[in-house]
Design a protein around this nucleic acid. Structure first.
Lengths: 148, 148
DNA sequence: CTGCATGCAAATAGTTTGCATGACG
DNA sequence: CGTCATGCAAACTATTTGCATGCAG
């Protein structure tokens, strides 16, 4: 499944004339496999396990390339941090726990209707969107109750 | 109308024990009046017109305070830039033109339903959200057609 | 082989902080 | 008057860039 995803990413890279290096592959692997929307730090740590010489710069450069060719999306937060998603590199809703920082991808079909409504009302040509919900996940709610 | 908004902001500041300085007032004025979601730069330029000695640091510090007391929201984008809204300092949808960078506040009542749906499905306790649509506004669409 | 990718270090940009001075309450 | 805010400059942090070397194609 995410095996396929990795193939897709590699294919697109080759198509665009980029080279497939071991470091890039390692970064792609994490971006393709991970459904947890990792940040740069996390990717870097992971990549170093297999490729100890890898530099932060390479991780950043790889992400820039992947964003450019539309195979990775960035989710930037107001605190300056960013998380990345190469598993579903298209706009989709996020459900973010402000306690444990986990990010889920809920299904929200009604979003399509909302977009259509917006087009009709405003005349905008919609290109993409961003929908994040912030809250406390059930697990963290339990923990908070126990602490009291 | 936004006169009232300014009063609100001032009141909250006083309540929390913060002082009302001319520089803060100037920043608050812009944040309260403006429906265009200005960035720090824009606020700074405006404030300098009336208070030439004002520093960037003061603008930043004022924004930090206003965010803390919930009277201003920040909209951070993936390119690192941020825009601020003191006119409607609560979560609401944005409609952003990627050409001219204008930001509108559309009405989308169905968002409430969406949130309820989410709570039922996931058990999350929702605290806030962020909903941005990116596209081309009607004016920019016209310009693009003329250029062809 | 040729040129793009790597990785180190230096540069950058936006934001934050420390501190002496000034002014709100 | 005491304390907090200002404004300058320095510090900081995350990201980007330049360049010599390495390696993919």
């Amino acid at each position: 499944m995410s095996e396929k995803r990795l193939e897709q990413m590699i294919g697109k890279l080759k198509n665009k004339g980029y080279r497939i290096t071991p470091q890039r592959l390692a970064v792609l692997n994490i971006l393709a496999e991970s459904t947890e929307h990792p940040d740069v730090e996390k990717i870097y740590i992971q990549v170093k396990k297999n490729f100890p010489t890898t530099s932060m710069a390479t991780v950043y450069k790889t992400i820039v390339v992947m964003k450019e060719i539309g195979e990775v999306i960035e989710i930037a937060f107001s605190d300056g941090s960013s998380r990345y998603d190469g598993n579903k590199p298209y706009p989709h809703p996020h459900l973010i726990c402000t306690k444990c920082k986990n990010i889920l991808d809920p299904d929200l079909d009604s979003l399509k209707n909302m977009t259509e409504e917006l087009v009709n009302e405003t005349g905008f040509m919609i290109q993409s969107h961003r929908l994040d919900f912030f809250g406390i996940c059930p697990e963290c709610q339990k923990k908070m109750n126990l602490e009291k």
